Simulated assay, not measured.
Amino acid sequence: MDKTSVRLIDNLAEVTSHQNTKVLEKSLLKTLTELLPTEDIVLYEVLEQEKGVTLNVISHAIAKQTTSKSNSEPDNIELFKPSSLLEAVQNQQVFIQSSENAQWNVFYPISSSNNNVFAVLSIVTGAFPSEIDKKLVSALLRVYSNYLGLLEKTQKDTLTGLFNRETLNYEISKILSRQNKSFNFHNNNASTDEKRRDLNQNKYWLGIIDIDHFKAINDTFGHLYGDEVLILVSRQMRKNLLRDDDLVFRYGGEEFVILLSTDTDIAAKSIFDRVRRQVSSHTFPQIEQVTISIGFVEIATQSSVADVIGQADKALYMAKENGRNRVEKYLPALK
């Protein structure tokens, strides 16, 4: 086995070692920049909308290495146009166009197991891609797509498409581990300046969301309609979370969880309250209005995932006791 094959296997192991999709995407682009003569790589998400297909940047990498122009380049490829990305999506084929500065733009559509294109990879290179290069990239993208499909099945709730409870536990555990290490370091070793910088860093907050009077909705309109309400509420919550790092989970039944990062409890409460208002202002079929109650807590130095959830649940209880359709922060006095 030659060095290139060993490096390829190592890179495949690296790509498929991540459960966080954002880290996975960065690892994929890093692998491609190491294996190919690339200058710039962008991964786009393909979104189907009423006005047509739109493309959003998921990840971007600029490679250090550049290569000279290949002698095997054909003469019949047009200059780069943004529409080329869409053409790759529509035709589900690799698309190549020449660009300025004697470079080549290569577009690889990425399909799911049901043959729907959900992403496009754009590579800028100084060398016209060989057939081997194209096969290598296409094979890596199939591995990426298959692995995403596995993550989707293991990490997502089947009804709402949100992250599931197991994924929530994993994410909280990661934050607790990071927070506890930081706490121990700053207590034992950190200088005054380091402690001050740490205070200015973003903190992590967990909010438990419960749909108010959901049992009455189920009893009056049936469980199928109850499921529809769960789906609609989950969509409204995702619509209002503006940052990529904010995560929404289906915790169970009519309960959801939001994980977010911001610097103060006031900022966190503002975000949670914005989510609450978003849901309450949405017009639902038949019942018109659905409201939610939220209890939230800072993830800091709790000893376990259960402690974090338990504290947020106490704050949720207070929100319901105080009239529902409101946001409450956990305070030690709530014990």
Rank of each mutant, 00 (worst) to 15 (best):
K3R: 14
T4H: 09
L8W: 12
L8F: 15
I9Y: 06
N11K: 13
L12C: 14
S17F: 08
H18W: 05
N20W: 01
K22N: 14
V23A: 13
L24E: 10
E25C: 04
K26I: 01
E34S: 09
L36T: 03
P37R: 02
P37E: 05
D40W: 01
V42D: 01
E45V: 08
E45D: 14
H60T: 06
I62L: 09
T66P: 02
K69W: 01
K69N: 07
S72Y: 11
D75S: 14
I77M: 13
F80H: 07
P82Y: 09
S84A: 12
L86I: 11
A88P: 09
F95M: 04
N105W: 11
P109E: 00
S112I: 06
S112Y: 04
N115H: 15
F118R: 08
A119F: 08
V120H: 01
S122L: 08
S122R: 10
V124T: 13
T125V: 00
P129S: 12
S130D: 09
K134Y: 12
K135Q: 14
Y144P: 00
S145P: 05
N146S: 05
L148R: 13
T154R: 03
Q155T: 12
K156M: 13
G161H: 04
L162I: 00
F163S: 01
F163R: 00
F163D: 07
L168H: 02
L168I: 06
L168V: 03
K174R: 09
S177A: 10
Q179M: 09
N180T: 03
K181L: 14
K181R: 15
S182P: 08
H186N: 15
N187S: 10
N189V: 09
D193F: 07
Y204T: 15
Y204H: 15
W205R: 05
L206E: 06
G207M: 03
H213N: 11
H213D: 15
K215A: 06
A216L: 09
I217V: 14
G222N: 05
G222A: 10
H223G: 04
V229H: 04
L230G: 01
Q236R: 09
L242H: 06
D244M: 05
L247T: 05
V248N: 01
Y251G: 02
E255Q: 09
E255H: 00
F256H: 02
L260M: 15
S261V: 10
T262A: 13
D263H: 14
R276S: 00
R277D: 05
R277C: 06
V279M: 03
H282K: 08
P285A: 11
Q286T: 14
I287A: 07
E288Q: 09
E288H: 08
V297Q: 02
E298C: 01
A300M: 00
Q302G: 02
S303T: 10
V305C: 11
A306C: 04
Q311F: 11
D313N: 01
D313W: 03
M318V: 14
E321W: 04
G323T: 10
N325Q: 07
K329D: 03
Y330W: 13
L334S: 05
